[in-house]
Design a protein around this nucleic acid. Sequence first.
DNA 1: TAATGAGTGTGACAAAAGTCACCAACATTG
DNA 2: CAATGTTGGTGACTTTTGTCACACTCATTA
Lengths: 213, 213
Amino acid sequence: MKDMTIAEYIERLFPQFEPALKTILIENATLRDFQGGDMLMQTGQNMRSTVLVVEGMVKLYREGEDGQEFFMYYLQPGNACALSMICATKQETSQVMAKAIEQTKVLMIPIALMDKLMRDYRTWYYFVIETYRMRFEELLFVIDNIAFKAMDERLAFYLKKQAGDLNTKELHLTHSEIASDLNTSREVISRLLKKMEQAGEIKMYRNYIEYLA
Amino acid sequence: MKDMTIAEYIERLFPQFEPALKTILIENATLRDFQGGDMLMQTGQNMRSTVLVVEGMVKLYREGEDGQEFFMYYLQPGNACALSMICATKQETSQVMAKAIEQTKVLMIPIALMDKLMRDYRTWYYFVIETYRMRFEELLFVIDNIAFKAMDERLAFYLKKQAGDLNTKELHLTHSEIASDLNTSREVISRLLKKMEQAGEIKMYRNYIEYLA
DNA sequence: TAATGAGTGTGACAAAAGTCACCAACATTG
DNA sequence: CAATGTTGGTGACTTTTGTCACACTCATTA
């Protein structure tokens, strides 16, 4: 999956796009590289492009006053940043933070192109609509969790989602990171994790957690 | 504002739409009436139309397991239901509840029309995009509040928003209703309201609260 | 007018979550 | 190897929130 061309990424991740759309994207998109930890978007920043992730993983989060990184969702290869589409169109500023959590490559589509793409290419239009829908749904899940669930349930849901999204049972997360993602304190996470371990749901190791089914 | 025709509502609330778009909406939209308390949308329900509010007020909320109505935002005349646009397009089911909180009229646009409108009418396209953006932002505010703020701040924010949205300082809300909207208990709300009254931020009366700037 | 129900006030207590202090294990690096 | 920083464990305590029980005031209506 290393060092593919823009054309190869598009062919692989967006096979449903009609040929003319692929061509116009290939001609106008630029490929950009990020290292783990690099910021793609920051609150208040102006957006000049629509972002399509083609490699790696991007964490979308809401920043708290003391630097907490309240986790919303991940963007994976084939996903677009819904906010970059919305804000780009109206030249609004971003309301969230986006950070690469590993080596990541994205396609940047100039905002000037959005109107034309939406009007002329139905597969693009459907892709945008579907992107909105999925992200809206994710936000609703987030709201459900913080509004209705206690911390132990939220933690269980969080770990399950991490295991699913990152596609591994070995979750390389420190207790502090989890606490930041859920906006609570490390001690609370440590205690709840111990309970989960006693209940046989996870096994704890230094620097990572094994998620048991 | 009573008993206007579809054409009059469109002219008044959506003056930015181009004439041809207005015509096609007038020909295809149907007007529907709701009484206060009527449901417009329920979780799991299939969506067959895009909804534009032209009169009254619609409350969007997430339903809790015990019937709580966790408040998200209001739709006012001129607003569209973002979810009815998204879900309509893909024939997905609704994830939220929408309830008229007073006499309300809405325009129903058949979903079959959405593709054409998006492609052919730029003012419609911008309207849809702007609708998404605003609702996305509202959800982010909701998340900020429950994720980062304690109940007293959330209550203060809630009252401020109600006063603003409903455009009145006389908030006709019972403590129970507020508790349901914020997913907490009545006693907590009563106690916090008392504190706010002592701090001179509100005045409490039976069945309503006066919001002091 | 007695009865009823909705709305609200309040004290006592329980549970959940947050804070503080400190310790121990381990890894890295000078 | 000593020093340092990160990670995690834990007890004690506080604060916030939720729960329970009950009382009081109104408004409505049988």
